[in-house]
Nucleic acid binder design. Structure first.
Length: 940
DNA sequence: CAGTGAGCGAGCTTCCGCTTGACTT
């Protein structure tokens, strides 16, 4: 009996292999294996004449979807088919949520198994859980699959009918979607609030007081029995106190006068109030909260967080990183509690194990929360991880452990101090028991927010005490506009509203950046003019679709479909067909939407029109009667920072011609400061027939246009010519591009459209660059020789990941050239000097494991007598093992990390090598077989 | 890499969610 089990991820496959008998082969589908075609190229020939070919959904026949196997998945599908041939039973063990159920169904459709099929689901990877899951297999849930298909079809209809409308009305390459359009709308909405924001100013007093030799500060809170106005009392639309608020607003003069009057008077404590408060730890991480905290605390983007988490997951350090569940398994709770007891002591344990429940909308909870893997947690130090992997693991470890720790107990202290008609307040905070604060305190999106775990100490003030006023200051404040969204706060909002899924939060941000809807400025997400235009169009003409509640309503219906309470077809019919359906609405609105209006952005307090053109946003300005002036808006200017002054500047520059910075010393040619399609640049001389390509130089990335001086411009421009290539008689330049400095051979011309370019290596400073250096790097790739066996070329050059050598060869019978790369060893090799022998030596070495830093060994045993490579001990997800080159052997029973000797290890490695050789005839069949044999040995 | 916004028109762009490798100006 052989059984094929299919799960989503290869890591999961590897793990559950250990809990299944040897007759079970576990393979991964790598997510979805079938989908709607993404574009015209993938649509099958027979549908190409259909009016709905772009949608790939037969809207004339019950929304029948046309599924294809994407190019990238063909290999996986082929492998699964081969594996199935050898099996007499198929178990589909994908996740238990909507998408997972759908993957199983698609697998069934593609594989068309002739053997019995079972659907198995499990939530924990333990022997018992998997055994139980095997016993409780069921059928595929067709309702759940329909719910997924409905979601897929709706998203396609939404995206692929609205995007073309945007192309027609605003510009190409734009997109609309159920998720991205809402995300952009949120960001645009915030920016509109910021533009409309009216700042208000208010003053207050802050006193430095002293009592029994300790100092503390107090703030003015009431005057004549009236509460003093603070930022929260202002109306953001007017910049004045919100109507109906009975507060006292101080201006600068009043505040200063009051200050001078009060400073010498007697200050008396009039009231003291203590309040006990408790703080509970935040729930364990989900994808969303992990991304938020990594962004707040380590400054990582959502994308970076996910890629590092993926590596931690693959190496067995953490559980699955795409989850919306805060559930912790029993083993995780036990492991956390063991950690706490050992590290902090019993009194830091929460009296009862704490289990959190998921609150976000539409959560599907197919996985556990993100936590350290296993049933005992390795402390961050024990992992041997480094850098960002360490930081992220540390965050996850602390957060998980904190969940099972005791509440923190605090006392808030408020002391009122009267002086004349004024009341000041000193606020303190005392931590009576730090509890989970010991391990972890959640970050905040508000940089000014007080940190929960920080004490503010006050002297023991009692009513009647008379502290001395040492200093009294009048402080002016301005109310601040609402903060822009960051990746953290956007992900938080999207999750709260149920928009997007754990697997997509990071890519949503990437999508809206690559469509140029938003720019990142530091951590802030800033919307562009395009985002304003697109959002306005969608809000005006498709308000329901960009409503924040659209997704949660959809989710509700999908849930109903999943449990059989609703039918999928009528839902799609209503969405797409009929008078109010999307199909008709897009047609109606296409006539209705005025091209000119759609491309124009209306901004308050701005006279000129901002329009979206082919080359980006530009200003259209009516100068007098007849003349209309058009001027591009610089790339990094967004609606948020466009004011009348800036517009006036842009228009002035357009009318008067480019700003002249001064004259080039020596030649006396004028130097201009201009704004081009690739950002600001300086230009020497004017473009004329004699001088068709004047010398130009970009400003360095961080250079502000306002601060450019003549001196700087001269420097930028003279960065240029290094000399003449003696053979080719062409000039060699050093230039600065968007990715740093680079060398260029010759100039761009009709005959030479792509001059040769080589980037400046990191260790050479632009000032130090000479013609010789440039020629050396421009001559790359260097041909080092031919491979004695294949006759292929051996070359050395610099690539995206640094200097490398490559062996280019054509395997026998193949037309394709294969390239085998090795990076040069830093500090040892030099790409300009490396010779053929050394290149061959590097190519003979095995490829280094990708994915960053090597794991740190538990123990170094020594050097292998034969090839002088190290033999080390490592901790793996399934136990400790010996590693030598690419060969791994488990530590045999009876031996421990400490006891094993180099000789014993070498013997074990030799044994493994011979067992490999004897099996070499069958080796190619499957890698899983090899693993099975080693495991057998271990368990004997 | 470097100065634009008309209009002609073929053929293309585009969605969300699940997953990992491949990627070397």
């Amino acid at each position: 009996m052989a059984t094929l089990v299919i799960v989503e991820s290869p890591t999961k496959a590897r793990t559950i292999r250990n809990y299944l008998p040897n007759s079970y082969q576990v393979e991964a589908s790598m997510g979805h294996v079938r989908d709607l075609p993404s574009g015209a190229k993938e649509v099958p020939e027979k549908y190409k004449d259909k009016p709905w070919k772009n949608l790939a959904i037969n809207v004339e026949n019950n929304f029948e979807p046309i599924y294809v196997i994407p190019k990238t998945k063909e290999k996986v599908v082929k492998e699964l088919k081969t594996a199935l041939k050898k099996a007499d039973e198929l178990i589909l063990a994908t996740d238990e949520d909507r998408e997972g159920e759908s993957i199983s169904w698609h697998l069934l459709e593609i594989l068309k198994p002739k053997v019995p099929v079972k659907r198995m689901v499990f939530h924990e990877i333990t022997q018992e859980a998997i055994q139980k899951a095997l016993d409780d297999c069921r059928e595929i849930d067709r309702d759940l699959v329909h719910a997924q298909e409905t979601r897929r079809i709706l998203d396609r209809l939404y995206g692929y009918t609205l995007s073309p409308l945007l192309w027609k009305k605003i510009g190409g390459n734009l997109s609309a979607g159920r998720v991205q359009s809402v995300a952009v709308r949120l960001i645009v909405g915030r920016e509109r609030e910021r533009r409309a924001f009216q700042s208000g100013s208010y003053w207050d007093l802050e006193a430095q007081l002293e009592h029994e030799k300790s100092e503390f500060s107090a703030k003015l809170i009431t005057l004549d029995g009236k509460k003093l106005a603070t930022g929260a009392d202002f109306d953001p639309d007017t910049g004045r106190i919100t109507e109906g608020r009975d507060v006292k607003l101080l201006n600068e003069t009043e505040a200063t006068t009051l200050k001078e009057r009060l400073i010498d008077r007697t200050w008396t404590v009039s009231d003291r109030n203590e309040k006990a408060i408790k703080r509970r730890p935040s729930p364990p991480f989900t994808t969303s909260t992990l991304q938020q905290e990594a962004n707040r605390k380590i400054g990582m983007s959502a994308r970076e967080t996910m890629s590092i988490a993926q590596k931690l997951y693959e190496q067995g350090y953490i559980t699955y990183m795409r989850t919306d569940s805060v559930h912790l398994s029993q083993e995780a709770i036990a492991a956390s509690r063991a950690c706490i007891e050992q590290k902090y002591g019993k009194k830091y344990l929460s009296p009862q194990p704490r289990q959190y429940s998921t609150k976000s909308k539409g959560a599907q909870e197919a996985h556990e929360a993100i936590r350290p893997a296993g049933n005992t947690f390795r402390t961050p130090k024990e992992t041997g991880l480094a850098d960002k992997q360490f930081k992220l693991y540390d965050l996850i470890w602390k957060r998980t452990v904190a969940c099972q720790m005791a509440e923190a107990r605090l006392t808030q202290i408020a002391v009122n101090i009267n002086v004349e008609e004024a009341v000041f307040r000193a606020s303190g905070k005392r931590i009576d028991f730090d509890g989970f604060f010991r391990a972890y305190v959640e970050g905040s999106d508000d940089p000014d927010a007080a940190i929960d775990s920080q004490e503010i100490l006050l002297p023991p003030l009692q009513v009647g005490d008379k502290p001395n006023c040492q200093k009294l200051e009048a402080l002016g404040h301005e109310t601040q506009p609402p903060a822009r969204f960051t990746e953290a706060s956007l992900v938080k909002t999207l999750e709260k509203e149920g928009v997007g899924r754990p697997s997509t939060y990071a890519s949503i941000i990437n999508t809206i950046i690559s469509r140029e809807y938003i720019q990142k400025r530091g951590k802030a997400l800033v919307p562009t003019f395009t985002a304003f235009a697109v959002t306005s169009l969608l809000e005006e003409h498709f308000p329901d679709l960009v409503d924040l509640g659209f997704t949660s309503q959809m989710e509700q219906t999908l849930d109903d479909i999943a449990v059989g309470k609703a039918k999928w077809l009528p839902y799609l019919e209503t969405f797409y067909r009929g008078e109010t359906g999307l199909e008709t609405q897009v047609q109606v609105q296409e006539d209705e939407i005025d091209l000119d209006t759609a491309k124009t952005i209306r901004l308050e307090n701005i006279e000129a029109k901002v329009r979206i053109g082919k080359f980006g946003p530009y200003i259209e300005y009516q100068n007098g009667e007849a003349e209309s002036i058009k001027a591009s808006i610089p790339k990094d200017v967004t609606p948020g920072d466009l004011d009348s002054e800036q517009i006036a500047n842009i228009i002035r520059q357009k009318i008067e011609g480019p700003d002249k910075l001064g004259l080039f010393p020596g030649t006396g040619e004028p130097i201009y400061l201009l704004n081009g399609p690739y950002g600001p640049y300086v230009q020497l001389g004017q473009k004329t027939d004699d001088n068709p390509a004047p010398r130009v130089a970009s400003l360095p990335k961080k250079q502000k246009i306002e601060d450019v001086t003549l001196d700087m411009a001269v420097r930028f421009l003279s960065l240029k010519k290094l000399g003449i290539h003696s053979e080719k008689k062409e000039a060699v330049y050093l230039r600065e591009g968007p990715y740093g400095h680079y060398f260029q051979l010759g100039e761009k011309s009709e005959t030479n459209k792509r001059p040769k370019i080589a980037s400046l290596p990191e260790h050479i400073k632009p000032e130090e660059a000479t013609l010789d250096i440039a020629l050396n790097y421009l001559s790359l790739p260097r041909l080092l020789g031919e491979h004695p066996e294949t006759g292929g070329k051996i070359k050395a050059s610099i690539g995206f990941y640094g200097p490398y050598v490559v062996h280019e060869f054509k395997p026998e019978g193949s037309k394709k050239t294969q390239k085998d790369y090795r990076s040069l060893k830093k500090d040892i090799d030099n790409v300009l000097e490396i010779d053929f022998e050394r290149a061959m030596e590097l190519l003979a070495q095995p490829k280094r494991a990708r994915g960053g830093r090597k794991k740190k060994p538990l123990r170094e045993l020594g050097i292998h007598p034969e090839d002088k490579e190290p033999v080390n001990l490592y901790k793996g997800p399934h136990g400790d093992y010996i590693k030598h080159n690419e060969t791994n052997v488990g530590i045999p029973e009876g031996e421990t990390i400490e006891s094993i000797t180099l000789e014993a290890a070498v013997a074990l490695l030799a044994e493994k090598a011979t067992s490999k050789k004897t099996k070499s005839t069958t080796r190619k069949k499957s890698t899983t077989k090899k693993k099975t044999t080693t495991r057998k040995k271990k368990t004997k």
